[in-house]
Amino acid sequence: MMTEPTSIPVTMPIDIVVVDDHAIFRSGLKADLDARMRVVGEAATVEEAIRVIHEHTPPVVLLDVHLPGGRGGGGAEVVAGCADLQGITRFLALSVSDSAEDVVSVIRAGARGYVTKTVSGAEISDAVVRVAGGDAAFSPRLAGFVLDAFGTAAVAAADEELDKLSARELEVMRLIARGYSYKEVARELFISIKTVETHVSAVLRKLQLSSRHELTRWAVDRRIL
């Protein structure tokens, strides 16, 4: 789960599968992605996605949160359906949705990051490379959700404490929510980019594994609204 320093050779394009039920969006995205990646498969429904992903076993899947088919679970169901590919295939969630529960549910299912569909192709490409390297891709909005869920004042005594963020993790999340890139966060806090990525991965792990009841209640509250 944690960051492994596997650097992807620049010469080898990253194989990715794009899962989205809108054909227009898929073709637009394919055109926007840069040369560091190659789209090897596409899918529009939950069943199709699980089949195509097992067929290609790509290192990265770009996954829409809202998908038709399956049992109605959308992107989270695809991640769950590909649990046997853990460690081989990583998921980057894409969404137009503003609602926290959509995003958090797919992250809790195991996705390594979340970007909004309105960001530029270059930003999505960066996020793909980051996820392919085993890191987490956080957008300002996801950082906002994390701060909302864990609270801005909760500070863990030990880094291993799943229900709270450490002081450093809080700082990193705040800067990302303020619109800082990983590089800018590193410069701001006088740490290396690698350290930033480690903090972000740790936060992602906490978001995925925490069973803290405030988090559950927060999610339930959001769902009710």
């Binding site: 300002p140 701060l147 801005t152 004042a153 705040r174 929510a177 303020r178 619109g179 800082y180």
Partner: peptide, 17 residues
């Protein structure tokens, strides 16, 4: 432009970047 609003029990902060 990125705007981040954080409201806690004791203060409200807004960052505009």
């Amino acid at each position: 432009v990125s705007v981040y609003v954080e409201v806690t029990g004791t203060r409200s902060e807004v960052f505009i970047r």
